[in-house]
Design a protein around this nucleic acid. Structure first.
Lengths: 160, 160
DNA sequence: TGGTAAATGTCAGTGATGGTCAAAGGGGAC
DNA sequence: GTCCCCTTTGACCATCACTGACATTTACCA
């Protein structure tokens, strides 16, 4: 039932976890031929599974001796996250929210239950509010951001 | 006389019961062709027989290697929440929210932190959303109600 | 200096899933 | 027979995985 995408994700994740610095450097072409897939498939995995909202930073270099480096972001303070969110407020999609929450959960800022609660408020509750005059799109994403912002500030006040 | 709906229900139920974790993962298309019916029939079965109110959680993923996962949840003493949920579908003032949350907390349905999170989403976040075209009053109360509803459903799925 | 080989990035397109909703179908109570 | 509620279907939509053509960047060497 696992897709190739899932398999590659778990492979990279294992590499990172077994690294002392939570960093791994790979070569896109080599990895692609190991898994017998198109090189761009690796980019897809990186984009969907190792995004900033999931707590990773991906750097790369092209050309001769090029590489892709995936780094797990260490967080011990949550303020930078709030700042980051305020900067990108207008572009916060549902999937970004989900990714961020699972990151916060993984880092023990919030419990699984708290994550589920927040998801309910920011995703489920906003799925069908057209009748309240809140159509899908920018406006709804902004409302979502407001709710997230307040909840994060609440979490911030707890400390870790 | 069993309907197709009943047959599929019992089939899924057997799968769940014979699973150690009370979880089963299926593919909508495959199941539909096994029972030689429209795929949406599966959705109907899920919606009518495996709802939260009957003690199940259904997750799914679309696209290639998509799936539908049905999980049985332990439910215990959740009737008061359901009752509240159905009664207060309409509108909720801030004070209503406060009252409900302190009750839920007192009854150990939620923790203090969870209560604070919910307050952040339903009170603080909705204090200044005029610029998003959501003026104070009925409309905002309805939005608050939607958020509460989804969060309560989430709590309900946890049991106690 | 400039050209070439070797990497990675981007993006739109395709196929495979599952979701939604309105409308048709069917069986029992009366 | 009629009505009503539950079932069942089909058309259409949304999402996800994956690919391939093409673009961009870099190192190295003549």
């Amino acid at each position: 039932m696992y897709s190739l995408c899932d398999t590659i994700e778990r492979y990279i994740m294992r590499l990172i976890e077994s690294s002392p610095d939570q960093v791994v450097t790979i070569q896109r072409g080599k990895l692609a031929s190991e898994f017998d897939c198109a090189p761009s498939q690796i980019n897809y995995v990186l984009a969907t599974r190792f995004s900033v909202f999931r707590g990773f930073i991906v750097e790369s270099r092209r050309g001769g001796s090029g590489y892709v480096r995936i780094r797990k972001i260490p967080i011990d303070r949550i303020e930078p996250i709030v700042a980051y969110l305020e900067e990108y407020e207008r572009q916060l999609r549902e999937s970004d929210v989900e990714d961020l929450l699972s990151w916060l959960e993984r880092e023990n800022f919030i419990t699984h239950r708290e994550s589920e609660l927040m998801k309910a408020a920011m995703i489920k509750a906003l799925e069908k509010v057209d009748d309240l005059g809140i159509p899908p799109g920018a406006e709804r994403n902004q409302l979502r951001s407001r709710i997230l912002r307040e909840m994060l500030l609440q979490i911030l006040s707890w400390g870790k």
